[in-house]
Computed example of a mutant assay.
Amino acid sequence: MTTIDIADAFLRSCLAELDALKPGNVHRFAAGHGMEVAHFEAAARAAAPAIARPDERVGTRIETAVAASLGVTGLNTNLGILLLCAPLAAAAERPRPLRAALVETLAALDRQDAAAVFRAIAAANPGGLGRRTEHDVAAPATIGLVEAMQLAAGDDRIARQYTSGFADVFDIGVARLHQLAGAEPQARTEAAYLAFLCAFPDSHIGRKFGRAAAEAVQEEARQLVAGIDWHAPAARRHPPLAAFDAGLKARGLNPGTSADLTVASLFAAALSP
């Protein structure tokens, strides 16, 4: 794909995710957690050129995109999105199917990529990050990026994508989008988001509030999804989603990892239609 195509697919994926009513997360139907849709739109537009920069290292794409996003919002709106989408963008430049190209892209990541990503994470300063005794992002990188992600993969679902070939993105998110090919685009995005929230405890909630809180939200999501018809119009889908949304935000719970994985799924689907 061309640079313009990749940048456009990234931006469209970010905007489509905002169009969906994602319980607990920021969307066009409700702000939350001190952030509004406008912050995410501005960050996506600022980051798109860096994410799609041709023949650029994955780590450099992430670091540059984080800097651009922080420059226009002053907030960490999209670190997880950028960590997921940069390898996909680089893979889309290779002349082979996306998933196979992604395996090659991940295998080529090295210490230089890790150093750039460490700097990006430190700059974004995500909530609940904590400190590590070894290979902390505040220190110089001494291992490759995939090796660094392996250390975090047990607690961080975004890190796990680097060690699994983005299995969750393709096997949960993209698969759900394809299963609902006949539904409204907004409903497909909502279903993909809830599929992640039901599949595992959200890492972002787990980092900030503990695994028990994340597991409780996972169970609430499973009960909610059982009663939703994704082929129904928004007027029928949205009331239960909105109620769950309000409840999560009242408790300060934001399933940010599920939202980031949803953007990556939309992006992956757009890159390999």
Rank of each mutant, 00 (worst) to 15 (best):
A92S: 15
H135N: 15
Q161K: 11
I172S: 06
A31S: 13
E63Q: 14
G173H: 05
R160D: 15
Q161L: 09
V66C: 07
Y162M: 09
D156L: 05
F118V: 01
A122H: 03
E41N: 00
G59K: 04
R131H: 10
T60M: 08
V146K: 08
T142K: 05
Q161N: 13
G71T: 11
A42I: 06
V66P: 11
A100E: 15
Q150L: 11
I62K: 10
Y162T: 07
N125G: 00
A86M: 11
H27S: 12
L129A: 13
Q112P: 05
V72F: 11
A120P: 00
G144T: 04
A153S: 13
A44T: 05
L79W: 12
D155G: 15
E41M: 04
A115S: 14
F118S: 01
A30D: 08
A152S: 13
C85W: 01
E93R: 09
T142H: 02
F29T: 06
Q161H: 10
A90Q: 13
A38Q: 13
V174G: 00
F118R: 05
G165L: 12
D110H: 10
F29A: 13
D168M: 12
G173F: 03
R94Y: 13
F170T: 00
V58R: 07
R57T: 13
L109R: 03
G165A: 10
G59N: 06
L83Y: 03
N125K: 07
L145G: 00
F29C: 03
A101H: 11
I51H: 07
A50G: 06
H39C: 06
L151H: 07
E104F: 07
C85D: 04
R132G: 04
L151E: 13
V137N: 04
A120W: 00
